[in-house]
Amino acid sequence: MSVDRVTAWLDHLRAHKADCPTGPLSEEGRDLILGHALDVLTPRALRQIATTPAPDCTAIVVARTSMTAPLEWAAMQLARGGRVLLKHPSGAPGLTTWFASTAAAHGLPLTATDDRQALAAADLLIALSSDDTIDTLRRQWPDTPLLGFGHKFSVAWLTDAREADALAADLAAHDSRGCMSPSVVLTPRSREEILPVLTAALDAAQARWPRGSLQPAEAAALRSRTAMVRVVGEVVEGRDWQLHRVPAARALPATWPRVLQLVTGATEADLQRFIGPRLSVLGIADGALPGLELRPTARRCPLGEMQRPPFPRRHDGVDMVEATAVR
């Protein structure tokens, strides 16, 4: 019963993407990430996870500008018969209110609020937020089980120029905001080999999914980083995208909107610098660097799949089905 309702709700979302707020994204960008989020939430996948019940009430704490991230968690718990509360930051509901209103129209107990006290009703807390927020939640609700997913980053290893379009698609999703976006792209190829291909791919991605708007601080931070790279590396600018070629030691696991941070002539040792507990996704071709070992918290996938995680899965090393079932 619940799975059917959730399926109907998700079908509604698929059919009415245009009703969804764009937030800082363009309409095309919004459709891209909604597609990514909805594609994997198939009736089959939902039936598969619905065999174990959810706690009565799961509250999902959503960070500012996290758009589709709570959807899979909400759909999973609703499909298992639970109630879901989406707690968004004050004044920044993102897509939560749209999810809640459309779900309610399908008889699903999904609500959205900015009231922190509403978390008192939760039997399980899922926090997609900063480490500070997760620590605060742990202190404030010490008796409520909490799954905390803090800030992470992702990197890509590009060996074949034919993967450039897939990489550009990964970068375009969410306009590079978010932990699954490739913050640094390392390639053993030379600048001359790879730059023309990447610029063409970034141009094509921009044409297909135009970048949305920038917040004031975001624009200032982008300008600051661009200035830095002008001094230590090379900046290639397209329409609403930038490619920052930097020495490996200057590459940072942080993202700026539609910025591809590139290390050319990279070695496996350069990549190893990023392999740690904060790594979320490594985008890499099948079979490349077979000896490379990742921590269990990281996901390895082909380029083009970085922003399209499977469902269900281990999220940051946590079995999302097992960890959210009634204990």
Partner: peptide, 10 residues
């Protein structure tokens, strides 16, 4: 305004 607009990334 918007000093931390980066969702779940660092």
């Amino acid at each position: 305004a918007g000093a931390e607009p980066r969702g779940c990334s660092l």
